[in-house]
Every structure is written in C-alpha cells, then in structure tokens.
C-alpha cells in the first residue's frame, strides 16, 4: 500500500486529475486545487488518523480529487455526485492513476437517505458548494447528508464568510464543531462571471464529530 506517500508525492499524483470538461455553474463545479487537497488529506491522516484503513465518503465528489487522494493514502473511498459526466471523468482519473479502491455513485445528496444506508462511513471528506450564490442553503444540506451517513468524523470546506452560520448549525445539531484551518483557495477562472484570471477565496476546513 502506498501509505508512505509524502505530501509532495500526493500532490504530484493529484496534479494528474482531470477536472470538468464543461462545468455547470449551478453545481459550483470547479476542482479542489491539488496542492490544497494533498495538504488537507495528509493533515487529516497525520493529526486525526481518519484516512488510512477508513471507509471514506466524498459528497459532491466531482471528478474525484478528494476521494482519489484519500485512496492514495490508504482509505477505501466512495464518491457520490449528481453529475454523471463528472463521474465519467472520475473513472478515467482512477484508471490513469491506477487506483482501484474507490467507487463512484451517481445520486442526489439532498436525497441520500433514499439510496445510501446510514452510519456505514467512518470519515466524510467533502468540498460542498459554498451556497453563497443562488444556491443558498445547499452547504447545510451537504452537512446534513454527511451526518446521516457518518458514524465518526466529517471534514468539510466552507467559505470563511459563512463560518458563523456553519458553526451555529453544528451547535444546533449538537455536534462538536471546530475550525481546523483557514485556507486560501486560488481558483482558476472557470466561469464567465469570474472577470479576473483567477480568484482567491478564503476557506475554512471544519470538522464535525458525530457520536453514535
């Protein structure tokens, strides 16, 4: 098993992951930058031992950056996304990287209880839509879905401007909720309304602890 991968080696592998061919705005489709994915996955593995040997689920996995990255460090991963085309790219990514320990499922996160048996997952790691455009509230729906499937830890990325709202939600659901890190995302100009070549966004890595 390649559990000995360094952050740099992980980053080099993740740099080969293809993104969206024609991203859809309403799904906030952009890929998690590979350097940030590598840092986060390595951090969670080393600080919390929530990657290696764990059953991991990536909600809104897109083309597989977080699910494949975790797999490279020794998790078994599942990725769920509503976009079949993105999952097709994700399957191409796993065959290119020679990773087999990951399965992708096409499904609607907001409806996860219909198709996914609850409490079978150790770790949820996800970069959900920020819910700050006309998709207000979608971030909370992702956390809700994560709570229903996870029996241990949820790691989720949220826009720093929504921190108060996210922490309040965690408290309301009686989950131990902590901001683990602040990260600056540099997102390439994926959509036409991004006027600059790339944009910087401040993002929090938030951990929710689920008790059975």
């Amino acid at each position: 098993m390649c559990t000995g991968l360094s952050e740099k080696e992980l980053y080099i592998s993740l740099s080969q992951i293809d993104g969206y061919h024609s991203p859809k705005l309403y799904l906030e489709q952009y890929i998690t930058p590979p350097n940030i994915a590598a840092t986060i996955i390595k951090f969670i593995d080393e600080e919390y031992q929530d990657i290696r040997g764990k059953n991991l689920l990536d909600l809104g996995c897109g083309t597989g950056m977080l699910s494949i990255g975790s797999c490279l460090l020794g998790s078994h991963s599942f990725g769920i996304d509503v976009c079949q085309r993105a999952l097709g790219v994700a399957r191409e990514n796993i065959s290119r990287l020679g990773v087999n320990d990951v399965d992708f499922i096409c499904g609607d996160i907001t409806n996860i209880k219909q198709f996914f048996i609850p409490k079978k997952i150790d770790t949820v790691l996800m970069n959900p839509p920020f819910g700050t455009k006309d998709n207000y509230g979608i971030d909370i729906k992702f956390i809700d879905a994560a709570i229903s499937v996870s029996c241990n830890s949820i790691y989720s990325l949220h826009k720093t401007t929504t921190r108060k709202h996210i922490l309040e939600f965690g408290e309301m659901r009686k989950l131990q909720t902590n901001v683990l890190a602040e990260i600056r995302f540099n997102i390439d100009n994926t959509f036409k309304f991004h006027k600059k070549k790339s944009v910087d966004i401040d993002v929090d890595l938030i951990k929710f602890e689920v008790c059975d």
Binding site: Y26, V82, I105, C106, D108, Y136, I138
Partner: peptide, 21 residues
C-alpha cells in the same frame, strides 16, 4: 457507475421539501 438518481415525480414522492438548485 450505478445511477441512483430519481425522476422528479419519484423525488416528490420521497421528499415533500422543495428542491433548490
């Protein structure tokens, strides 16, 4: 890839909450 997506009618039957995009 298994496709577990429901049709709009089926979704209405599962979930009374309106969907947001």
């Amino acid at each position: 890839i298994p496709n577990m997506l429901l049709t709009d009618e089926e979704e209405m039957a599962v979930d009374s909450e309106p969907k947001s995009k």
